[in-house]
Design a protein around this nucleic acid. Sequence first.
DNA 1: TTGAAAGCGCTAACAC
DNA 2: GTGTTAGCGCTTTCAA
Lengths: 342, 342
Amino acid sequence: MKRRGAPTILDVAEASGLSKSTVSNVIRGAGSVSAETRRRVLEVVADLGYRPNALARNLVQQRTSTIGIVVGDLSNPVYSELAKLVEQRASDMGFSAMICNTDGHTPSEAARIESLLEHRVAGIVMLQFSGEGAIVGELREQGVPLTVVSCWVEHTDCVSIDDTVGAELAVDHLIELGHRRIAYLSSGLVEAKTDGFRFEGYRRALDHGGLEMGEELVLRSEEPPYLRSDRDLQADVERVLGGHDPPTAFFVSNDLVAVDLIETLEEGGVQVPADVSVVGFDDIAIAGLARVSLTTVVQPRDELARLGMELLMRRIEGGDSLPLKQVRLEPVLVVRSSTRRP
Amino acid sequence: MKRRGAPTILDVAEASGLSKSTVSNVIRGAGSVSAETRRRVLEVVADLGYRPNALARNLVQQRTSTIGIVVGDLSNPVYSELAKLVEQRASDMGFSAMICNTDGHTPSEAARIESLLEHRVAGIVMLQFSGEGAIVGELREQGVPLTVVSCWVEHTDCVSIDDTVGAELAVDHLIELGHRRIAYLSSGLVEAKTDGFRFEGYRRALDHGGLEMGEELVLRSEEPPYLRSDRDLQADVERVLGGHDPPTAFFVSNDLVAVDLIETLEEGGVQVPADVSVVGFDDIAIAGLARVSLTTVVQPRDELARLGMELLMRRIEGGDSLPLKQVRLEPVLVVRSSTRRP
DNA sequence: TTGAAAGCGCTAACAC
DNA sequence: GTGTTAGCGCTTTCAA
């Protein structure tokens, strides 16, 4: 009596007087089994509460139906929504998801990916990318399908909006409103390369708006940990606003920080948009609240998730030999009431 | 030359001229191996880029180091934060996490759990509980450790704040401010049983405040899908406020809905807190923004996650025989500026 | 200190 | 239509 632990396919075989493989056939719906046999097996399966062991199956099949989702910060609504949507789509396609939060911390990102590889995931979706080129290389070498969502990464299947154009849209809007002194604010919350693109868009907009870019208007720490500590932000903001010829508008490369900025400004008695305009990036849910009403650039989460899974599945099925596929989505600016004429 | 796919422990054994078991010993740090042997093995491991196959290991060990995290709605910040914290702690303890989003949808919850069981997860943490008693029973029967976080569920290890006391705190606060007509608002976003507790707290507070509960002040759809459609909310709110002897305050059993309510009220020209006070529940990040500044009951996410994993580990290690452990945390009210004297 | 061998639960040829 | 068999990559006695 070895009835310890969950029933195995062998238990089902014995109880139904059939062989392992026949049982396996009916469970997988493969091969050909007589109606009567199928009925009997199914009955026993229900009786015993048999549940196939995915580990054994995956081991023998040399592939799993699990994907990894690597996200920088699940408490940022952009990413938790993306994660949710990707998980949803994965599940629809019969895949389970291991979701890992890295806190934007490279060592912990490496550890999480290592674990995913040990679990032999069929592929990995990265939302927000640490920029550690080593990881992309490593994965390609291992032949593990990788798709990056919401970041543009060279030599990798990816889908993201055109960050540069998005930023341009935002800053153009400010210029059209008549702003001449526009500050740029970002933080470690935005992945470095992405921030680079957005900054580029900012530069371009100033450029063809005939505006000069003042170094003193750029609040951007190259170091990953521009800790979103309110004190730092407050100090920086005070410095910029207290300077000579202060900005009348801010373009912020991330809604969370934009909201923080508004908070900080108003704490200091500076009203938005009466005294200063603010544009964000992402269009997270709170941006749409009447009390916040942030003008911002939309990240179409649904599209990103859909295309991301699509690219991943394509690569899982098609293998290394398929050509690279990188999709750039058109950004859209939503004008709300955090911006107005200076 | 079968050098197809990732190198196995056998490849390492061959390349180092040792046996599988010796290699296994050094990898697991078990048994006793000479320093020289260890060095040699490690060298080959690095050379070949060998990575242990977790599937094989888990299969033979008859246990996994994967847990399942089942969450109702990852786009609700309460749950995405909890999920993040639980994943973090799991990872610290050497566990990977499969995170599933159920959208509060019972069939999809069942499917996700089925998949987790097929993957033989070591345990499951449920954030937000659908109330399907069948599932708890099923899991217990299967001997799969289960911990529910942020909901109080009978006969199951769980940790949550005292929802009744929390609601009482909130409503007491309104009463102390002088409100006499206090409405109750909830939605399908809050799990039914939990909502029940909060409603009970509301009732009690009215009771010992010597206030009568008016049926007409209770906006609470028993049906799971009290769809958070703004239209429904708007209609309900208009009805209540337009009625005879309208409320001067709302207690809302969920911050997300509370924020929605404020939005809806102000759209209709009703100012918060000037005309009407609002108290929420959860203390999500946006509640703390100056522009929102919602008085609310705090859910201590950190504590919940920590205790949740603690309970789960205890059960994973201790098994069925351990006594039930249910932890109730003391709620705290944060008073901000969405409430004032009527 | 090291190695040989027996599985873990399942699938996938291949026989019958 | 059904059964036999040989593994998948690993851990774990048990001998040597």
